[in-house]
Amino acid sequence: MTSLIPPATSDRAAKVMLWVSASIAMLTLLFILGYIVVQGLPVLTLSFLLESPRLSGAEGGILPAIVGTFCLLLVTLLSAVPIGIGAAIYLAEYAPEGVVTRIISFGVECLAGIPSIVIGLFGYAFLVIYLGFGFSILSGGLALMFMILPWVVRVSEESLKAVPGGLREGSLALGATKWQTVSRVVLPSAIPGITTGVILGIGKAIGETAVIMFTAGSSLLMPTSLFDPVRALPYHLYILASEGISDKMAYGSSVVLLVMVLVMNLAAVAIQRHYGRHHVRN
């Protein structure tokens, strides 16, 4: 049976439909960004960025929340990167193919599927109570590490596996050991991919609320040590909005949060460019 619609017409129809889908995706983003920026811009002043909040955040600024967010991310980064890349190197380069490796990979995938609120609860029970870290930067940062670890492992593993086998052979054929080969040739070649993965992971962590509300606390004071509680930006935003403290301030905080994510993505691009200059352009 031949179709009633001529091929040229269906071709054009498909093109229009695909264009509409792409446009809706793009417009959604622009609409959300535009709305938030328009709502938030009026409160965005230097004092908003550099002052502490007053009246639970109805007035003043958000400096402690910005600092708190950075502190949490620093702990997350410093713990997730070495552990994640280490696990990825083991899985990609050393682990023999077999049951154990498959169990580890499966475990990592399961970890990725745990809802963040459950990780928050676990972080509360294990880090805050059992290990006695209390509501603190340390607890919050480590709990966020649990959340992004599978992501970092997965992306790093894929990046390592994508490094051509010929490079490993070339290095080994020169009398390099396995570790020399991995650390001097394979890992540097995988850095652009790993960096992207880590930064996207951090991007997920930066907006995470459920994990930190149980672990990092909600103090609006400036932290002075790893064991001080902090209120991260997304949680501050949640409290401002949900308790009806100030919508304006909530939108202002949103803009700051979005800018932080944007800066992070730009950093990813810059790092990729820097490390990517030796990479194949075919």
Binding site: G166, L167, S171, L172, A173, L174, G175, T177, V185, S189
Partner: peptide
């Protein structure tokens, strides 16, 4: 590893390090 210092190899596809 020691052996390969004395016996080098050039491969089919050029594989310079990046």
């Amino acid at each position: 590893v020691e052996l390969r210092k004395k016996i080098g190899m050039v491969f089919q596809k050029p594989n310079p390090f990046p």
